[in-house]
């Protein structure tokens, strides 16, 4: 028994190491003092963080990504929550059809979606503009909100809404006083996923950010194509930290809603 246990612990440990090693290497390299990417670094230093924070282009892209993601969060959360509520009220066959359609941006390969969006947006001058990025990312983020809000809704007794109506609440009143507080964890988790979806999104950004709306992942991609220097590791580390913090928040919210 103990031998089996030791074996399974070792296997799980190795799998975890395999998954985290690239991240660890990136983090370590970001603190390198060398002028080129090398592991292990000859000495430690903060020069690449200094390079990042000193670069107008990097900071512009970071700021763009953050505010685009913030707008996406607002749009996707509102649209996704409304969609989840609407879908929940549909009769069963229509419900399946509607949720499949809503999830389709996740099912269709990303590059296909990206090409489609590129051609459609090009006609309306939305390529190379933050508005285009916001619209495209909202499409990609809505399914996450719908999924997470639907899961919250499924756990709510439909009779609570009836009870609220019988007690004199209007449908709007019942939504804001009863339904919304009960699905709040699902809405917040959906919002976090929407942020991460937009903030990390590369494929659509490659097609439509042009030169006027270069998001952070797009800047990283361009940078990697021309030169490989540790600034990219510093940017990656900051992105990883931000994403990890958000995922942690999402996890906490989900755990709180489960109890």
């Amino acid at each position: 028994m103990t031998a089996m246990r030791a074996l399974s612990t070792t296997v799980v440990g190795l799998i975890l190491l395999f998954l985290t090693l690239p991240i660890i290497i990136v983090v370590v390299v970001s603190f390198s003092s060398a002028t080129y990417l090398t592991f292990p670094p000859p000495a430690l230093g903060l020069r690449w963080y200094a390079a990042y924070f000193g670069s107008e282009a990097w900071l512009q892209s970071t700021w763009l990504s953050i505010w685009v993601a913030a707008v996406v969060v607002v749009l996707a959360t509102i649209l996704g929550t409304l969609a989840a509520l609407g879908v929940a009220h549909l009769p069963k066959p229509l419900r399946v059809l509607a949720s499949t359609l809503i999830l389709s941006p996740l099912i269709v390969p990303g590059i296909i979606v990206a090409i489609g969006i590129y051609y459609a947006f090009a006609q309306y001058g939305l390529v190379g503009s933050p508005v285009g990025l916001i619209l495209a990312h909202t499409c990609l983020a809505v399914p996450f909100v719908v999924t997470s809000v639907s899961a919250s809704l499924a756990g709510i007794d439909p009779r609570l809404e009836q009870a609220a109506l019988s007690l004199g609440a209007t449908p709007t009143g019942a939504f804001f006083q009863i339904t919304l507080p009960l699905i709040r964890p699902g809405v917040l988790v959906g919002a976090l996923f929407a942020f991460i979806t937009s903030f990390d999104e590369l494929i659509v950004a490659i097609y439509i950010s042009g030169s006027g709306a270069v998001s952070l992942p797009r800047r990283m991609w361009d940078d990697l194509q021309f030169q490989i220097e540790p600034t990219i590791a510093a940017v990656s580390t900051l992105t990883i930290v931000l994403t990890a913090v958000l995922m942690g928040c999402a996890h906490l919210l989900q755990r709180r809603s489960a109890t």
Binding site: D157, R159, L160, Q162, A163, A164, L165, S166, L167, G168, A169, T170, P171, G173, Q177, I178, P181, L182
Partner: peptide
């Protein structure tokens, strides 16, 4: 339903889980 002014008691009680007893009754 919200204009009919009818009291209703449900089989599974249908109390609002996020509200206190007083807020449920005060609703």
């Amino acid at each position: 339903p919200y204009r009919r002014n009818i009291g209703m008691v449900f089989q599974n009680y249908a109390l609002f889980p996020h509200l206190t007893v007083a807020d449920n009754i005060g609703f």
